Simulated assay, not measured.
Amino acid sequence: MCRLRIEFIQLEPARGLTLFLASSKIDRANQGRQLSVPALTRLCPVQAYEDWLECSGLRDGPLLRNVDRWGRLGDGLHSYSVSRILRRAFHRSGLEGEGYCGHSLRRGFATWTSVNQWSAKALMDYVGWRDVQSAMRYVEADASFGAWRR
């Protein structure tokens, strides 16, 4: 998330985003890869992206930025900041935030896909995992059985 750059994101309003990741942990040849992010009916990342660009006035550079105490945008968000931001969001929502980190977002998403009956293949394609065992480590064991639950 912290390495996303606006110039590497193509927006199709109300349809989706196409992201180009110049490098990643699984891209040993440093060729980069493209990801597609569809628009959703709730908590839509496409709408959030559109809103952020409109609100921030950003046109290039890092997508996510640090904000100083006077509300000015900085150069870019550091990966260590994600945990602090996540915990602060939990706290402001009245939830306990300790024990959560940036990786919790990935784990939560993987579990959400399982609850919402995504196939393991769909999850792996969406996140970029190549190994089923890697993907399944992120899904909470006590996740709901979705439509199979009584």
Results as ranks from 00 to 15, higher is better:
R33V: 02
R33I: 00
V37C: 09
L40T: 11
L40E: 13
T41N: 15
T41Q: 14
T41G: 14
L43H: 15
Q47F: 03
E50T: 09
D51A: 14
D51F: 01
W52I: 05
C55F: 15
S56T: 15
S56I: 09
G57P: 04
G57L: 06
R59A: 12
L63S: 00
L64H: 10
R65E: 04
V67M: 13
D68T: 06
W70C: 10
G71N: 10
R72A: 12
G74D: 07
G74I: 03
D75I: 04
D75E: 13
L77T: 01
L77K: 05
L77C: 08
H78E: 12
Y80A: 11
S83N: 06
S83A: 14
R87M: 07
R87Y: 08
R88I: 02
R88N: 11
S93W: 06
G94C: 06
G94V: 07
E96V: 07
E96H: 12
E98N: 14
E98V: 08
Y100G: 00
Y100W: 13
C101F: 04
C101W: 03
G102R: 05
H103E: 04
L105R: 02
R107L: 01
R107K: 13
G108H: 01
G108M: 03
A110Y: 00
A110Q: 02
A110D: 02
T111D: 07
W112G: 00
V115F: 00
Q117E: 15
W118S: 11
S119A: 07
A120T: 12
A120E: 13
K121Y: 11
A122W: 02
L123D: 00
L123A: 10
Y126S: 11
